[in-house]
Write a protein that binds this DNA or RNA. Sequence first.
DNA 1: TGAGTATAGTTCAATATCGCACCAGAATGA
DNA 2: TCATTCTGGTGCGATATTGAACTATACTCA
Lengths: 160, 160
Amino acid sequence: MPEPDTAVFFEVFNEIGIIEQLSRTILEARMPAGLIAPHFTVLNHLTRVGDGQTPIDMARAFQVPKTSMTHTLKGLEQHGLIETRPNPDDGRSKQVWLTDKGRALRSDIIASLGPDFQFLSEHFDTAKLSEIRPVLTALRIFLDENRHMVGKTMSIETTS
Amino acid sequence: MPEPDTAVFFEVFNEIGIIEQLSRTILEARMPAGLIAPHFTVLNHLTRVGDGQTPIDMARAFQVPKTSMTHTLKGLEQHGLIETRPNPDDGRSKQVWLTDKGRALRSDIIASLGPDFQFLSEHFDTAKLSEIRPVLTALRIFLDENRHMVGKTMSIETTS
DNA sequence: TGAGTATAGTTCAATATCGCACCAGAATGA
DNA sequence: TCATTCTGGTGCGATATTGAACTATACTCA
């Protein structure tokens, strides 16, 4: 036990890793065959922050390499859930737009998660979750802003 | 906004997904080439709960499919970080043991994360993390125990 | 304005994840 | 005890993830 102070990070990251695994499985169980969590994440993001995002913006938002975003978008496009158009402001870039089918699918998935979340909220104190949410958000923002300060000056290639 | 009450799950899972991504990147930046987060997770688990676990036990502990565990263990064994021996109590099964090299690597990785966590703890209120940790633990346990209640009666194959 | 540099996106290859099918050994129960 | 069922583990194939290298466009600044 070298650092009593920093051990919390270890514990918290550990729990978060397992919760991520479990929650992803719940989500994917409600998604159509051929689509997985990252696809939903994109549909959801475009709905919330608005259409017309560029792939690189979304790669940064989710902290995934841009090659992963390329792959995810390809899958969404093949399923007719998004459309891409050239970015009028930048010839290198694309903009991503939801199709009606994409919007509908997002709604359907959220609706089908309703019973799951209903069950969860009946058996787990959602007030606790409301309490921790701001801390998680702060932690996410902090890690995001300082990702070049930890882990070896993280590879430039990773996202930018 | 269909369900005001269950939306917290959505938000919390969303934050957790991004934090998982970021923290995994930090960890992997401190790991030797050819090894990734799941390898560390196993080394750490074996150190904490003790040697001699079976692969299926660990697959359940981390909520990953058993085929994924097979793959992860294969990598660890090739690197000489673990050894597997037949389980004397069950002819179908194996037991997994840490080698000295495996123990040493875990220590080294944790040590090399020291400065990262040091930085984090200097700039982020660890008291907040201590506060949310029990809630995360409770959530993890709850999701784990009820994973057959949500997401379609999750595939039996997934882990068992 | 042109040379050098930076950035968005893709292709490619290596590895990871995971469902399916299968095998071998264990547990159950008539 | 032996037929049936269950369980731990692996091989395999399809898909996902990601770093490296590359192309095309944009930016910078002398």
